[in-house]
Simulated scan of single mutants.
Amino acid sequence: MIDYATHSRFTDPGPAGEWLAGVGPDLAELRRVASGLVFHFWGNGDITDHGFPAERLAEVDLRYAADMFARLRALNPAPLAEERAPTERIVGCCRDFTLLFVSMARHHGIPARSRVGFAGYLSPDWYMDHVVAEVWDGRRWRLVDPQFLDGSVDLMDVPRDRFLVGADAWRACRSGAIDPERFVVSPELTIPGTRGLTQVRHDLVQDLASLNKHEMILWDLWGGLSDAPELSEEDVAAADELAASMQDPHVDLRALFDTDAYRVSPVITSFDQVTQVPVEVVLR
């Protein structure tokens, strides 16, 4: 069994651990606090329109919770649960709200993990690339969205048909239940590979990594992941097999992950969001 109550190298808060002690363990409180720690790097338009210097966009590439909490403390050393001005938050994305929530939950010994997939509650008619948390409440795993204070669904228990984890999204596309073109990073984004089966397969592999406590940045590439705009027949067949395996409760997720196609290598490629070029990253 994978122990989701203990930290990964990505969720470990490092020296900020004692700072986290003042928040939680109530899940609603953890979610409230997490929602105020990150300012989405495009969700509200250009960050410079909200008082951020342009160079702070680089914060969206922060990978480790320890670095995020250190930056938050430098911006405002007040207790973590206190409300922050927008510019006292780190610039990030959905992955970062969730990573910090999972880090705080695991700090209190609560089994929690990141899930990568598609939200059907963010924009009408679309399933948008998104990351939420999944928390074991003693009876079942339930989805918790730490990004928003309120929404059109219960963000403390998001229905499974409103957020489709990677395997569910892939099989919905392949079965014809949902048009693959409805799965997007953003309805306005037209970059090749950011919608349809290509994006769904990307999130499928990202979700497998998250289930194995590798909470990756969404624009990371490793193993069989690439920035090719189209999938080959072999890619589609492999994704069919992967999605079916991930939905099988008897499959060992660690063994599924431990292949050249899916295992996160010590050196990966990531797209720097400031320069918009791929860079080589050596993981800690």
Rank of each mutant, 00 (worst) to 15 (best):
Q247Y: 01
M1E: 13
D96A: 04
Y127H: 14
L37R: 11
E234M: 13
A237D: 13
E29T: 14
A169I: 04
W141M: 03
Q273H: 11
V274E: 09
S265N: 12
A16V: 02
G196M: 14
D227Y: 08
T48A: 12
G223Y: 10
M128F: 07
G117D: 02
L100F: 08
S270M: 14
V33N: 08
E29N: 12
V91K: 03
R139Y: 10
F148E: 05
P180Y: 07
T87D: 06
A28I: 08
L30F: 04
F52Y: 15
R84D: 00
I90W: 06
R73Q: 15
D145N: 03
D3A: 11
S123V: 15
R113G: 03
R32P: 02
V282R: 15
D272H: 13
D150E: 14
L99D: 02
A167G: 00
P25A: 05
S232H: 09
D49W: 14
D137Y: 02
A21C: 12
I2V: 15
V91H: 05
D154I: 01
S270F: 08
S186M: 10
R160W: 03
R182P: 00
F39I: 11
A28G: 14
E215D: 15
D125C: 05
A85R: 14
D260N: 15
H40M: 04
T6I: 11
F41T: 10
R140D: 11
D12C: 12
A119M: 04
A228T: 11
D49F: 04
R95L: 09
E188K: 11
L30M: 10
A58D: 04
R140Y: 01
R284Y: 08
E241R: 12
L80V: 10
E215G: 06
T11D: 12
L164Q: 01
P111R: 04
V165N: 08
L30N: 10
T11S: 15
R263M: 06
T98V: 08
V135R: 05
L283N: 05
P180E: 14
D26R: 12
L122K: 05
C93K: 10
T190G: 05
F118W: 13
V33I: 13
G138E: 07
F118E: 00
L62N: 02
F97Y: 15
W42L: 15
I110A: 06
L218N: 11
